[in-house]
Amino acid sequence: MSAKKRNKKSRKKQAPPTLREKIQVYFASKNPILKFLLGFVGSMLLFYLFYYSGLYRNYLEYPFLNAQVRLSNLLLQLFGQGTIADGTIISSSEFSVNLKNGCDGLEAMAILCSGIIIFPIEWSYKWKGILWGILILFIANLLRIAGLYLAGRYFSAEVFDILHIQGGFIVFTLLSVLLWFLWMNWAINKKQKTAVV
């Protein structure tokens, strides 16, 4: 019997995978992702423990929000807006925004840092991602605050509300996820190139 015929026969004998086998294969391919998710959730839990702790709420929150308000106000003044910064408020005679927790961009930064820390690669790649990521997100958050002020001043309260949740919060979080994926691609590429050299 020729090899071709034998192959055909053995292929005919092979039964299609059962539902149980399909599920097993699916979860085997999911295994590293599920492990990664577990680490990611654990890392975010640690962040939230810090974020809601007395240490952050009583001592760090106000100075951090105040710094962001001052810098965003500076940005607005560069664009000719006659705004003043006072505590956590940016105001003018036409409109004012009050920065509260959740507007500080820290959750998005924590998502990025958690993703980078959990990703299985050497630390020499990680710290660059964390530093650049936090810097980009910090600047993006200043732009977001200034943009929300402008939306509130020149458009309606409805537009401000929509941008606050949709544009501000969701797109800002997407930016952090995107930076995370960009970093993973960069780190893997760089590692492969180093290995080849």
């Binding site: 999911k30 992702i33 599920l34 998710l37 959740g102 998502i111 969701i170 979080t173």
Partner: peptide
């Protein structure tokens, strides 16, 4: 709202 977003991300990754 931040936890809402986190749940969405976890579901998406998973």
């Amino acid at each position: 709202i931040g936890v809402n977003l986190l749940v969405v991300l976890i579901l998406w990754i998973g």
